[in-house]
Design a protein around this nucleic acid. Structure first.
Length: 562
RNA sequence: AGGGGCGUCGCCAAGCGGUAAGGCAACGGGCUUUGGACCCGUCAUUCGCAGGUUCGAAUCCUGCCGCCCCUGCCA
């Protein structure tokens, strides 16, 4: 059985595939392909991470290679076991399969230490005791070269001894670091004697108190890749400058040397994925938490009811490049509708109920109509829907004075009640005080059983409905884009929030079938896709989330009329 | 400013010297017991700009313009 990630739409070509395929063709790395996804367990995975994971996963899969999941846990200050677990769950949900290849960078600490000793012995690393501010100053600027550290020319012996003391906890945090001896005048700032190790007297969530020194990204990452035999190390564009250092460390050590390839991060319109911003949304309670259905986290998509397949389709469709991208969120919505259209059962749910009385329908009579669950796939079967004299229809499906092209119910007009009968509006009752329509009275055509026009007359409108005596109550949460503007970072990001990103509707009337559907996604006919909220919905207190609306061309007509 | 990158339709993106794929969006139309889905059609004489090479350039060369990344003991 293929997983969501495996079943997703495959895309055309991209520059990474081309590079890898050339490498394979010319026998580089023995013709092998090994990629990896290296998240830091310091937060929840979001769409951007999901994209990065898929890019590497797909390359491995396509070339019959290996894919590794490696937690890049080199900073004990921010990392926690619970994030490891949540990230694993997110990737599993997506259907990404790393087999037995689950690794932790912190397990390589002893090896990394040995390599550092080697570099010191080669005279290419030294212990620097400049304080942080001075070191920063002496690094120079983009236009001026840096100043060599006074500790730069210590002997390997002295460096080895000091490094040992750092490791043993004999030197206080901030008092010394291990630096690579490269070039303080390099045009690439990354190469100006970068730090390899800093002292941190902090326990590591996985290694406990074993270490007092922790490796810096550049030093650790290339070696993690090398140790695992990675061939193509795919990462985001901001590491382009770091590639020089990635290559330098590996060259000096003379070890297996993967090829780093950078690609553009994913940005989506009306969405924000910077960790800082997401934390702010949660902390200021602009959303309900990390799994709020409006959040771009994997947790959020999952709770919203987005199928993993749809998310994977989207991530595949956008391809990979080095150009700064901002994909329109409508493509994601399209992928979600696309997947759900073929799989979701159709049901009737009235969100804003308006009472309808069929005056010529016998009181107390109940008919059970057979309704197809999905006209697109008959194999999804049928269900029974109760019809009686008192019904509810959608408030917006009735207008006293219908505007042009309004194909719904209005005085004297006949419409079809889906699966049931053709009905004609004969009168309506107004609330004296508010002027609101209280109830609508109709006459039904007994000959139109099942909704067919007996004489072939054209009935343009079809409404969904629910029998008042047979429906169940529920709260329905309508969700929309979290941000009202395309680029939330343009201007005040908080002010760009969409005030109507969540609208709660109480007293909705659902077909009774919905009382027991579980969390599968269903289509509320003519409205959209919905699923019971896995946290808040309980028997007798149903809560449904909108996954995505159906396309609504009437809304467009109305908008244009205004 | 120095270094590293990027610029093809509103958005994403193929294209690799032979005369601009595709998807989303949009717009027309058909069909419809969901104003959904589906189907059909329209949508870049032009590839950031300006020169040059060539029979021929989005693709090669030169210059310019615009945007992004880099001066953590974060990743």
């Amino acid at each position: 059985m293929a997983s969501p990630a495996d079943r997703a739409t495959t895309r055309v070509s991209n520059f990474i595939r081309e590079i890898v395929s050339e490498d394979v063709a010319k026998g580089a790395f023995g013709g092998q392909v090994v990629t990896r996804f290296p998240p830091e367990p310091n937060g929840y995975l979001h769409l951007g991470h999901a994209y990065a994971a898929r890019v590497s996963y797909e390359v491995a899969r396509e070339f019959g290679g290996r894919f590794h999941l490696r937690f890049d846990d080199t900073n004990p200050l921010t990392e926690e076991q619970r994030y490891v677990e949540s990230q694993i769950a997110a990737l599993e949900w997506m259907g990404i399969d790393w087999g037995d290849n689950l690794f932790f960078a912190s397990d390589y600490f002893p090896k990394l230490h040995a390599y550092a000793v080697q570099l010191i012995e080669q005279g290419q690393a030294y212990v620097c005791q400049l304080n942080q501010d001075v070191m920063r100053q002496q690094r120079g600027t983009a236009t001026t070269p840096g100043i060599p550290s006074p500790y730069r020319d210590r002997s390997p012996e002295e460096n080895l001894e000091l490094f040992e003391r750092m490791k043993n906890g004999d030197i206080a945090p901030g008092e010394a670091v291990l630096r690579a001896k490269i070039d303080m005048a390099a045009a690439n700032l990354v190469m100006r004697d970068p730090v390899m190790y800093r002292i941190l007297h902090v326990p590591h969530y996985r290694q406990g108190n074993d270490w007092c020194i922790y490796p810096i990204y550049d030093w650790a990452h290339c070696l993690e890749d090398s140790i695992e035999g990675v061939t193509h190390s795919l990462c985001s564009l901001e590491f382009e400058n770091n590639r020089a250092l990635y290559d330098w460390y590996l060259d000096q050590l003379g070890v297996h040397h993967p090829r780093q390839i950078e690609f553009s991060r994913l940005n989506v319109s009306h969405m924000v994925t910077s960790k800082r911003r997401l934390i702010q949304l949660v902390q200021e309670k602009r959303v309900d938490g990390w799994d709020d259905p409006r959040m771009p986290t994997v947790l959020g998509f999952r709770r919203r009811g987005v199928p993993a397949e749809a998310m994977c389709d989207f991530l595949s469709l956008i391809s990979v490049s080095k150009a700064p991208t901002a994909v329109d969120i409508s493509l994601l919505e399209y992928c979600v509708r696309q997947r759900l259209n073929s799989t979701a059962n159709r049901v009737m749910a009235v969100l804003r109920p308006l009472k309808v009385i069929i005056d010529n329908y016998p009181e107390g009579q109940v008919e059970w109509f057979e309704a197809d669950n999905n006209p697109e796939s008959p194999e999804q079967g049928v269900r029974k829907v109760a019809f009686s004299r008192e019904l509810y229809i959608e408030e917006e499906d009735f207008r006293i004075d219908p505007p042009p092209k309004y194909f719904r119910l209005s005085p004297g007009v006949e419409i079809r009640l889906k699966h049931a009968y053709l009905v004609t509006c004969e009168s309506y009752v107004l609330d004296e005080a508010t002027g609101r329509v209280l109830e609508v009275h109709c006459r039904y055509d007994p000959e139109s059983r099942g909704g067919a026009a007996p004489d072939g007359r054209k009935v343009k409108g079809t409404s969904h409905w629910v029998s008042a005596a047979h429906c169940v109550d529920a709260t329905v949460r309508l969700y929309d884009r979290l941000f009202a503007v395309e680029d939330p970072e343009d201007g005040d990001f908080i002010e760009n929030l969409n005030s109507e990103s969540r609208v709660d509707l109480g007293g909705c009337k659902l077909e009774s079938y919905l009382a027991e559907v579980g969390t599968e996604v269903v289509q509320f006919l003519r409205q959209g896709y919905f699923a019971a909220d896995r946290v808040d919905s309980k028997p007798g207190e149903l809560v449904f989330n909108q996954v995505v609306s159906l396309k609504d061309s009437w809304a467009k007509i109305e908008r244009r009329a205004r």
